[in-house]
Simulated scan of single mutants.
Amino acid sequence: MNLVSNYSLRDEIKAYWSERAATFDEQPGHEIFSEGERAAWQALFLKHLGRGDGRAALDLACGTAVISHLLDDIGFRVTGIDWAEPMLERARKKAATRKRKIEFVLGDAEVTMEPDNSADVITNRHLVWTLVNPAAAFSEWHRILKPGGKLLVIDGDFVNPGPLSRLISRLSALGQRLGLVKADKRHGPGALAETHRSILSRVYFSDGARADQVVRLLEEAGFTDIRVDYDLKAIHREQRRNFSLLKGLERATQHRYAISAVKKA
């Protein structure tokens, strides 16, 4: 019974992201809208991964390839994997426009079918919170990495806002009702927003993907030298230019992080 339920949920997640593809790049926090933000993201990747120098990077749940391009910019040989073909269509167009040789593959981030010990680096952004079985996914990523290879997870707890974040969110909602604050783009039309809430309530991290929980599962999967980086201020500062003031402040107070981990050599 659990297998049927899990398959159904994974099917829903795939359909949701397929439908989101059409407007995904319109939302700040997904696409990059300034060279300042691009530089801030590149600095984060350089901090944790170093320059690519032709090393093989696997960008899981790549979507429209925002992260894939950042990795390509700093010299990685990038393959992006996503299970939503509409996302990959946009990713391929973006790579063609920028004249980048990034390979895109239709596949499942939890069961990649990639060879053992084949990637120097694995990255993903805002994937972990959607995982049905993160323990199995982390073991899969560990298998794919070469000895000494590095994983970089960028994610957050989008379920449990802190007191300041809750206050800012209430002020933002009030400002929108009074016509004083323009509404920020979120998850598309009402039906998609409801689908997002439904999915979030049923994934493994339905209570929020806290960094310590992710670290524990990475340790169980065999990763070592795990480091949690909460210093994403430069990225948030640049993103605030495209959010309302209150939304930008709310985002900066959320539990967001980058976690790097190593497959022992």
Rank of each mutant, 00 (worst) to 15 (best):
M113A: 15
G179S: 09
N242K: 09
D11W: 07
E85K: 14
K233H: 12
R237T: 13
N124A: 12
L70S: 00
D72N: 12
D120A: 13
I67W: 03
Y257D: 02
S165P: 05
E31M: 08
W141Q: 12
V228G: 05
L167M: 12
K263Y: 03
S139M: 14
R197V: 04
G248D: 03
L200G: 07
T195H: 13
D212G: 03
R92F: 12
Q42L: 13
S206C: 12
Q42G: 01
L246A: 10
I259E: 02
V262P: 03
Q176E: 15
G222A: 07
V111N: 15
G50D: 01
A258K: 00
G175F: 05
V228C: 04
A135C: 00
H48Y: 01
V181L: 14
F243C: 11
H187M: 09
A109G: 14
E19Q: 12
D72I: 00
T64W: 03
K47R: 15
R20E: 12
R10M: 13
K99F: 10
M113H: 15
E238M: 01
V111T: 15
D231H: 11
R241W: 00
K146N: 06
D108M: 07
L246R: 06
L245Q: 08
A265L: 09
R216C: 08
D229H: 05
N160V: 06
A265V: 05
V105F: 11
D157Y: 07
G52V: 00
Y16A: 00
L152H: 01
K14L: 12
I259Q: 00
R170G: 10
D59W: 01
G162F: 11
R100S: 14
L88E: 13
T195C: 11
Q42V: 09
E250P: 01
D229S: 01
I32R: 07
G148V: 02
I32G: 04
E31F: 13
V214S: 07
D212A: 06
N242E: 10
F205G: 05
R197A: 14
D108E: 12
G63C: 10
D207E: 15
K146P: 08
H30D: 10
N160I: 05
A21L: 07
R90G: 12
E89W: 13
R186L: 13
Q42T: 09
K150A: 11
N242Q: 09
L246S: 08
R186F: 08
L200S: 13
T123S: 07
L60S: 00
S18I: 02
E89T: 14
E35S: 08
L131G: 05
P134F: 03
Y7A: 12
A209F: 06
K150V: 15
D231K: 09
K47C: 02
D157F: 10
S172G: 04
D120K: 02
I32N: 09
D155I: 04
T195L: 14
P147A: 00
P163N: 12
A209L: 11
S68V: 06
E110C: 06
L106T: 14
Q27A: 11
V78G: 08
E12N: 10
G175N: 08
T23A: 07
H69S: 10
R202K: 15
V105N: 08
H126I: 14
E19M: 09
G149R: 07
A252D: 13
K101W: 00
R177N: 08
A57F: 00
T253Y: 07
V153I: 15
E85N: 10
E220L: 13
